[in-house]
Design a protein around this nucleic acid. Structure first.
Length: 495
RNA sequence: GGUCCCGUGACCGAGAGGCUAGGUAGUGGUCUGCAAAACCAUGUACAGCGGUUCGAAUCCGCUCGGGACCUCCA
């Protein structure tokens, strides 16, 4: 098994990954609250873990990837006092809450599919784990770490810390500072301490999402679902927990508090947090109103865009940066990625057709080493805290040799058969399986294209250049170009 | 106000004490009916000012600029 280093938020260091159980990885990622459309910022986070999932499998791990859907309990506005997000939309649009949930769950799935994400192993929902959550609340009360107040139940931060917990350790916060800085909010009288958070909320009669519980009708607190679902499917302590940086505090901090209180174990070994996607240097977020919807991007239908960009272009664009850096979203950057991605994509088509031809040619050691280094470099880069940017740099080195062979600038034999085959095999593996990039279909029929190329050849033999230009124009209109090479005629996606 | 992060060439973006990241754009070349593609060559970039060091984009300090979290957010 190749070594994987992960930057662990808990220790603020890169650590060599060691799974709880050899050969197996349990990974949990906080999924979306399905009350609105997924935007590109959300996509970046899920993309990071999609690539991690793919990479872990590629290097031989058996991975159970759990990504939840939050369909209740996530409140609008401040702390524990707002309305349920889904309930609010349901009321506004006069829908059943489950209709809201279904609509945006479908949207979420559709978006992820467009970006070629692998489905997780388990995709649990909060409403589907009501019993587990109620049991967890009971348990926490019994352990003296939670208390009931007016039909709601709160987690007791002070008790937790008295018993050896250290609330704030993930986000680097000091409890005293937090206590001093907490803003006074209305209705906090229900809590003993402003930092305490709801694990069960009392529901007023008009609240449309509620369930019976020992504390009356109500619904679970947001943080609790992740604790219940992660430990249910991955165990009391599991390997990797991921999410956006903005969930570090308080959401993940609360998960640690709940999880370790319930099981006596620190629930997560490696915490990973993805950085934000920014627009003009500012975080893309729903509340700031600067978010892009994938559909707007694909249609080019946004004031900041002057053309559409395909899902794979965007996927590639995001992979060109490291997940812990902010990534700024701009037209110019996207354009560069589009061109670069098409080059790589044409390389994919080409490499699949290349065959080794043995010849008298001597092996060119320098080039051979170059290829081998690029292949190893790709693995090393991904193994170094998922550095896809560096991985892609190595992919471009591989592309260069693929192109040289294809163009007859370098005989395949100069690399030696083993290296040639590795180049061919790994390029496809890295591109498709690890990075999750793929050909984007536009419905062109390869047989028809090849027929046109035959005609092109005839015209060329007859030096009928006007006809040739016509064919070229036709290809261009369809996003393709004809590659008129010395030794062959082929087509490629226009870059 | 508290905690933390970032500022890299025309643009995007890796790296994190000595070793050409990469991509896009530009320029020159090889090739070509012409193109395109491909390949080759080409940029003395690391916000500013000090300091540590044989050596700093990388470490330390200050200044300027930007951002995140502290409240729902991936």
């Amino acid at each position: 098994m190749r070594e994987l280093k992960i930057f662990n938020t808990l220790t603020r260091k890169k650590e060599v990954f060691e799974p709880v159980t050899e050969g197996y990885v349990g990974m949990y990622v906080c999924g979306p609250t399905v009350y609105s459309n997924a935007h590109l910022g959300n996509v970046r986070t899920f993309l990071t873990f999609d690539v991690l999932f793919r990479y872990l499998r590629t290097i031989g791990y058996k991975v159970r990837y759990v990504r939840n859907i939050t369909d209740v309990g996530h409140l609008v506005g401040d702390g524990d006092e707002g309305e349920d997000k889904i309930g609010k939309i349901a009321k506004l649009e006069k829908l059943e809450p489950m209709e809201v949930v279904q609509r945006y769950t479908n949207d979420f799935h559709q978006v992820l599919e467009q970006f070629n994400f692998l489905p997780p192993s388990v995709e649990p929902t909060a409403t589907g784990h009501m019993i587990e959550q109620i049991e967890a609340v009971k348990d926490l009360i019994e352990k003296g770490l939670a208390y009931e107040s007016k039909g709601s139940v709160y987690f007791d931060i002070e008790k937790y810390n008295e018993k050896g917990g250290s609330y704030g350790k993930l986000s680097g916060r000091i409890l005293e500072d937090l206590l001093n800085e907490t803003r006074e909010l209305d209705g906090q009288s229900e809590k003993r301490n402003p930092l305490d958070f709801a694990i069960w909320k009392n529901a007023s009669p008009e609240h449309i999402m509620q369930w019976p519980s020992p504390w009356g009708m109500g619904f679970p607190g947001w943080h609790l679902e992740c604790t219940c679902m992660s430990t249910k499917y991955l165990g009391d302590q599991f390997d990797i927990h991921g999410g956006g940086m903005d969930l570090k505090f308080p959401h993940h901090e609360c998960e640690i508090a709940q999880g370790s209180s319930l099981t006596g174990k620190d629930p997560v070994r490696y915490w990973m947090h993805t950085n934000m996607l920014t627009v003009n240097g500012q975080k893309m977020s729903k509340s700031l109103g600067n978010s892009f919807l994938p559909a707007q991007l694909f249609a080019g239908d946004h004031e900041l865009l002057d053309q559409p960009y395909s899902p794979m272009t965007v996927r590639f664009f995001m992979l060109q940066s490291q997940y812990r850096s902010t990534l700024d979203f701009s037209n110019d950057a996207l354009k560069g990625s589009q061109k670069a991605f098409r080059r790589l994509l044409n390389g994919l088509r080409i490499v699949k057709t290349l065959e080794f031809v043995s010849s008298e040619t001597e092996i060119e050691e320098k080039k051979k080493t170059d290829v081998v280094k690029a292949i190893e470099g790709f693995y090393d880069a991904l193994g170094d805290d998922l550095n896809t940017a560096v991985g892609i740099a190595h992919l471009f080195t591989m592309l260069k040799y693929i192109n040289m062979i294809y163009m007859n600038q370098l005989p395949a034999a100069a690399l030696g058969e083993t290296t040639f085959n590795a180049l061919k095999e790994k390029y496809v593996l890295f591109f498709e399986d690890v990075l999750g990039l793929q050909e984007e279909q536009n419905g062109s029929d390869v047989a028809v294209l090849n027929g046109m190329l035959e005609i092109y050849k005839e015209y060329k033999a007859n030096r009928q250049f006007d006809k040739i230009d016509q064919i070229r124009a036709y290809f261009k209109d369809n996003g393709m170009v004809i590659k008129d090479l010395k030794h062959r005629i082929d087509w490629a996606w226009e870059e």
